[in-house]
């Protein structure tokens, strides 16, 4: 359904000398992937591995140097009219504090994409339905972001993403800003929604526990290169790339008691 073919994205480095050519660094190097309807893909890697750049390319927020993103066979160009694409592919950002306009009531924030994307139907009713779906009270619509905790704001961000009834949800570290007990609740909410609505999910995360819980496939990025991919259970049980092994060994685990 959502495919990426040979994506490359480079950034220029400063010149080493006055006459030298500027250096180049690959943020994402020759990454391809295909996401089937309802499939959940976890993208893991450390800072600078290209996780977020890959997500931006998939969302057509950034243009690849080469390679292409297609959705249901149709090319996705960052410059064209992407309303059709945005209705189908939505994003949950990392930071629930930064992603909601502090001067907009929650209801208006959730309604905004419905209007921008010209989603048909009664938007007012839809907002109420969305807030209920993420476990918020109906009166939340009239309140402002600062009146909510981090976990509640992340629920709002999820409601906003679900508004246009997308087929795919892309999420960039959606749980990492949350306390552990809240993280469990929001993770369970995402799992439940994805199950119930049959959504496909691309989850970028450095938290392998969360990826293990939510994703059936796993892609490991290092320095922009996909060093390993496969079924989550297989990769975690028997990682084939040395980097994946090092990464898994480094994750602190609760001691057995």
């Amino acid at each position: 359904m959502l495919t990426a073919e040979g994506l490359n994205r480079t950034y220029r480095l400063p010149r080493r000398s006055l006459f030298g050519a500027p250096g180049q660094r690959y943020a994402v190097r020759d990454v391809s992937l295909a996401l089937a309807p309802g499939e959940r893909l976890g993208v893991v890697g450390e800072s600078g591995s290209g996780k977020s750049t890959l997500l931006r390319l998939l969302l057509a927020l950034d243009r690849p140097d080469s390679g292409a993103v297609t959705f249901r066979g149709r090319a996705v160009h960052p410059t064209g009219d992407l309303r059709w694409f945005r209705r189908e592919v939505q994003m949950v950002p990392q930071d629930p504090y930064g992603s909601l306009d502090p001067r907009m009531r929650i209801g208006d924030s959730v309604r905004e994409p419905l209007e921008c994307l010209r989603v048909p139907g009664d938007h007012r009713a839809r907002v109420a339905e969305l807030l209920a779906a993420v476990g918020l009270d109906a009166d939340a619509a009239g309140r402002y972001p600062h009146e909510f905790s981090g976990g509640q704001r992340q629920r709002v961000a999820i409601a906003r993403a679900l508004g246009p009834e997308p087929a795919v949800l892309l999420a960039d570290e959606p749980f990492s800003a949350l306390d552990v007990a809240v993280r469990v609740q929001v993770t369970a909410l995402v799992q439940d929604l994805v199950d119930r609505l049959g959504l496909a999910l691309v989850l970028v995360s450095h938290d392998i526990g969360v990826v293990q819980q939510l994703c059936d496939r796993l892609l490991v990025l290092k320095d922009g290169v996909a060093v390993e991919s496969g079924a989550t259970a297989d990769v975690l049980r028997a990682p084939s790339h040395p980097y994946t092994r090092a990464l898994l060994d480094a994750v602190p685990r609760l001691p057995e008691v």
Binding site: V180, T187, G209, Q213, R253
Partner: peptide, 16 residues
Amino acid sequence: RTLLAAARATSFTREA
């Protein structure tokens, strides 16, 4: 108990 349950729920296990 809540803290612990949460830590267990999101912790990564090698065997699962």
